[in-house]
């Protein structure tokens, strides 16, 4: 049996039974121009199930962006494998199916806006699938409704706030009807309101539509919104658990160069002042209800 056939059979067997995303011993090395290389990912084994809401955190340069770009084949493994919905990213013919099932939103809201109005931008993905105009219209309208931008359909990008542009990008990802959306620091260039709206949108997509979310973020407060949290340091996943478990590791967090969610920090200071508070208050809501 040829290698290609073997891979194909493996894909058939695995459908359904296997996790939605599966990384096996994934490494990635960037070749440097003057010779040499940067080993950005150093052997990652990881699975993500359908319907999960996962936050990925880690210091600058730890390999978060490199990791997520493997999940829709923007980057291909130096060694190891990436399986998405039973398809191997290294298989050229799988690439377009994978990109239909895994949407991606990037950091800069301005630079991922392809078209000159909201609705045309949202249509870009499904247009690439060659869908007929009626179907495009339906998908655009549905996606805009899910992110709450229906009234902005004909607005040009320069008349939108950063948060609205990011939600347009989310709608653009939704329009191909993906099972999973990956966001690489989508809120880092937004104001507080834009951040809150974007996060609310993600939460409702996860809860109401069952869409798998992988959120790369620098904000520990945002990470507490997830049900599972991954910490990356120097190309490795060093911690994987619920936010409560991860933030419960005190000293190690400091070694990794990570901060604490603001609620946790406030609770710590209040305890220093002699207040009796329970452990594991991750969100401001939890803190508030413990105090009142």
């Amino acid at each position: 049996m040829s290698k290609k056939q073997a891979l194909g059979n493996q894909a058939l067997e695995s459908q359904g039974a296997r996790p939605f995303i599966e990384l096996r011993a994934l490494t990635h090395a960037y070749a440097l121009e003057g010779g040499g290389e940067v080993r950005a990912l150093q052997g990652i084994d990881l699975t993500i199930e359908r319907g999960e809401f996962v936050a990925l955190v880690g210091p600058n340069g730890s390999g978060k962006s490199t990791l997520v770009r493997h999940l829709n084949g923007l980057l291909l493994p130096t060694s190891g494998q990436v399986w998405v919905d039973g398809l191997l990213t290294a298989h050229p013919s799988s690439l377009w199916k994978i990109r239909e099932r895994v949407g991606m939103v990037f950091q800069n809201p301005e630079n991922q806006f392809v078209a000159s109005t909201v609705e045309e931008d949202v249509a870009f993905g499904p247009e690439n699938l060659g869908l007929p105009p009626d179907e495009l219209r339906r998908r655009v309208d549905d996606a805009l409704k899910l992110v709450g931008l229906t009234e902005y359909a004909t607005h040009p990008p320069h008349m939108l706030s950063g948060g609205q542009k990011q939600r347009t990008a989310i709608a653009g990802a939704l329009a191909t009807r993906p099972a999973c959306i990956i966001l690489d620091e989508p809120t880092s260039m937004l104001d507080p309101l834009g951040r809150r709206r974007t996060l609310e949108t993600l939460r409702s997509l996860n809860q109401d539509q069952g869409i798998t979310i992988l959120l790369v973020t620098q904000s520990m407060d945002e990470a507490t919104a997830a049900e599972r949290m991954l910490v990356m340091v120097r190309g490795r996943v060093v911690s994987d658990g619920t936010p409560a478990e991860v933030f419960g590791q005190g000293q190690r967090l400091r070694e990794w160069g990570l901060g604490l969610p603001s609620a946790l920090e406030i609770a710590d200071r209040l305890r220093e002042r002699g207040l009796n508070l329970p452990a594991g208050l991750l969100t401001v809501e939890q803190l508030a209800s413990a105090l009142c």
Binding site: N108, E110, N111, V114, N128, P133, T176
Partner: peptide, 27 residues
């Protein structure tokens, strides 16, 4: 140039291959 690079990545992530098999929202 930074924008062009970001835009190219975003277009690729959204399944852009060539202008040929694309359809249009507007008729």
């Amino acid at each position: 140039f930074r924008r062009a690079e970001d835009l190219a990545t975003a277009m690729e992530a959204r399944g852009f291959r060539s202008a040929h098999q694309r359809t249009h929202l507007y008729r």
